[in-house]
Design a protein around this nucleic acid. Structure first.
Lengths: 247, 247
DNA sequence: TTGCGATGTTCCATTATATGAAACGCTGGT
DNA sequence: ACCAGCGTTTCATATAATGGAACATCGCAA
């Protein structure tokens, strides 16, 4: 039987990183030890080791915070996705053409993350960042996954209503059926008030590998109107072709 | 004396993460063990532990790659910088106003990283990403640091010439003297051909805490001309004031 | 279809590493 | 000047990690 109740040294070190990440502000040795139920000496030694490798660093007051080496590691996870490299020029061309923010999202570990984006209008600059998780039921890219690649994501049965337009239960199921039928999804202020968008799946080797979305102000019909989806579907197909072309 | 020749368990785990990051493609247990000089059993156990916490994951073929949890950690390093939060609306307003990409860069561990950016013209979408390191001697933000906050960065004596306009040795020192005198820096295709920009320091409590830059095509004099720097200096001052205002 | 080589996974006796109580040095506040 | 609380270090001891060996699985060639 596995030693499930024992926490190994590596897991303690990861706990330290998670603790500092969640704390959001630099913390001292004593606070970290208390927060994790570890003696000061143990916390100190783990911090020293993580610090030697740049995963933790000290601020001017000597307190500990997550280190800059994590940025390279995190960025590397995104950049080494083949679909990100394949999609980049297509996202740029599309953002330039329509003047709105174009996102690429993909499923990892059952959740949906922004893999890349090219910004358009100022409305969308603040949400969301590359690397952020986005909700499945309240975004166009999320509904693409729920309808067309449900095996790759874990649907949240207790999904919240973000706005009074968020679709839940039967209304969501009805909308997902429409997404499955026509092969693309629409978001009309279901996640963030005033925000609308369209998304199409990116296929490679017969599987959904990402979803591309255009988002902008709900007041602009051009963002979510029927004329907007064809170019997005073409862009998605081009990304898929570029992915398969590298075989 | 410290046991310097021994590599602890946490450091082996970090070695595994670095190895996968640098490999750039998923690797198997045997290859990881060989690459790091570890027995397969040791490599396997470390991968299992890292995998339980999402820092490593397996692809469809069962090979190991850096995990999505690193993205959140890396993103968190950037997002929790007070200067990033303070600067965000200022960067957005400035990018909207001039239509060019606005960057925020800051020094960490002696090197310079892009902490945030708001994209403008299509020219600059591809370079560089948030979280990327940028060279000191060949960028406007880098020259701001070398001239006005040299204690926070480690100047590379063997800095390369990226283009035929890259300033080195005495020419760079002369330019840094001008930057110190007037309080801002200019890049005229010194890093990437065709790319120009201006940068100003962000001060808080008497220290340089970041540098803000506007960048765009070298063909557009509006990007690097004398009329462009005043609004950037105002933007830098506003960020500094917002930082100090939270005290 | 079968056999083989290479990979991934597990076990457990042994060892090396980590532990953490205690002591010490330092800092900031009163 | 003093004290409480923090950060850092030591080292006897405990515990977790180690890694050789064995086993299970997989992919490929004949």
């Amino acid at each position: 039987m596995e030693h499930r109740n024992r926490v190994g040294t590596v897991e303690k070190a990861v706990d330290v990183l998670q603790y500092l990440h969640e704390a959001g502000v630099p913390r001292g040795v004593t606070a970290i030890g208390r927060g994790l139920g570890l003696p000061k000496a143990t916390a100190h030694r783990l911090l020293k080791t993580l610090g030697r490798r740049g995963l933790v660093e000290r601020d001017d007051a000597g307190r500990y915070r997550p280190g800059i080496a994590l940025v390279a590691l995190g960025l590397g996870v995104i950049e080494r996705e083949p679909v990100v490299a394949a999609a980049r020029p297509v996202l740029e061309a599309e953002a330039e053409r329509i003047g709105e923010t174009i996102f690429l999202a993909g499923a990892r570990g059952g959740r949906l993350f922004v893999l890349d984006k090219c910004e358009g209008s100022s409305f969308l600059r603040a949400a969301p960042r590359i690397g952020s998780e986005v909700p499945l039921h309240a975004t166009a890219v999320g509904k693409v996954y729920l309808a067309l690649a449900a095996d790759q994501v874990q649907r949240d049965e207790a999904a919240p209503a973000y706005t009074d337009r968020t679709l839940l239960a039967d209304a969501l199921d009805d909308d997902l059926a429409r997404v499955a039928e026509r092969g693309w999804a629409q978001n009309r202020e279901e996640w963030i008030p005033g925000l609308a968008g369209l998304a199409a799946p990116v296929y490679a080797r017969g599987r959904v590998v990402a979803s591309i979305a255009a988002s902008g102000a709900a007041a602009r019909a051009e963002v979510w109107g029927p004329d907007a989806i064809e170019p997005l579907i073409r862009a998605a197909r081009e990304i898929g072709a570029r992915l398969e072309g590298t075989t």
